[in-house]
């Protein structure tokens, strides 16, 4: 089949789908609603906190929500080692405008203050990230390609460096820094307690919501003060796509083998650079 014919056929299929929208009285808000179901729609130009009727920042920070968030932060920060499974999902718009959801599964192992390993499978290509306090290594096992770079001396600094150099960002980053609460406390504009849930990781959790001018997050925190789920919407995202991470298989202060944070599988791999996939 000729390219032109194929393109026309593709355009036809998409066009006919879109035609449904057009012919059905052009219910255009439906497009937006489909992409943002369950999400309120205040002005996109305004900070998230402006959607609240209460203009006082202090009154928008409910103490019980702050307390739960602090307790979670303290529990995580005080652990010398952490290991958990993170099931992350995020929405990405299809060509039709409505989002698809993609999921990754990461096995995370951390030893404070300077060691981290993230083994990611799930949809898409597998990836492995190692940080041992001196270097950070990203390995694509299916392609046998590896990127290696010098890294700062702490997990927090290494994560910031990885994001700056190569747009590497883990959805669970907010939970593994040295001080999760301290990192965002100064920017918090909203914190409120939602209620209890039995729906996350098979345990009872307290649901809280927190927000600054950029991010709105709902967090499920277990009775053991460990996060079980977090769901985030970014104010800068015009589609308000949802990003979610579920936490399970928590292990705190377990012994971790010294060779966990490096791998010799990369010895025969082809070196490639860390780089940002900026638009052309």
């Amino acid at each position: 089949m000729k390219q032109s014919a194929i393109s026309k056929t593709n355009a036809l299929i998409i066009g006919v789908f879109l035609l449904q929208i057009g012919l059905l009285s052009l219910r255009i808000p439906g497009i937006s609603n489909a992409a943002n179901a369950q999400t309120p729609q205040p002005s996109r130009e305004a900070p998230l906190s402006d959607a609240l009727p209460n203009g006082s920042p202090q009154l928008n920070l409910e103490q019980n929500a702050i307390d739960r968030f602090k307790a979670m932060s303290n529990r995580l920060a005080s652990a010398q080692t952490l290991a958990f499974t993170a099931i992350s999902s995020y929405e990405s718009p299809s060509r039709l405008g409505v989002p698809l959801v993609y999921t990754t599964v990461s096995e995370v192992t951390l030893q404070r203050p300077d060691k981290l390993r993230v083994i990611t499978s799930g949809q898409g290509a597998a990836s492995e990230f190692y940080y041992d306090g001196k270097t950070m290594t990203a390995y694509a096992p299916d392609k046998n390609l590896v990127a290696v770079a010098e890294a700062p001396a702490t997990i927090d600094a290494a994560l910031a460096s990885a994001y700056s150099a190569a747009a590497i960002y883990f959805p669970f980053t907010d939970m593994i820094t040295a001080d999760p609460y301290g990192d965002i406390a100064s920017s918090l504009k909203v914190a409120f307690y939602i209620g209890q849930s039995q729906a996350a990781d098979g345990t009872t959790t307290d649901m809280i919501a927190i927000a600054n001018d950029k991010v709105f997050a709902q967090i499920w925190i277990g009775a053991d003060d460990l996060p079980r789920m977090m769901r985030v919407v970014y104010a800068d995202d015009p589609l308000w796509l949802r990003h979610q991470v579920e936490f399970t298989n928590w292990q705190l202060n377990s012994a971790i083998a010294p060779d966990t944070f490096s791998t010799d599988r990369t010895n025969s791999a082809t070196r490639i650079p860390f780089t940002r996939p900026d638009p052309p």
């Binding site: 990203a138 694509a140 960002y169 780089t275």
Partner: peptide, 8 residues
């Protein structure tokens, strides 16, 4: 080739 945004 490059590594960025958690992939190649």
């Amino acid at each position: 080739p490059g590594y960025g945004a958690n992939g190649v």
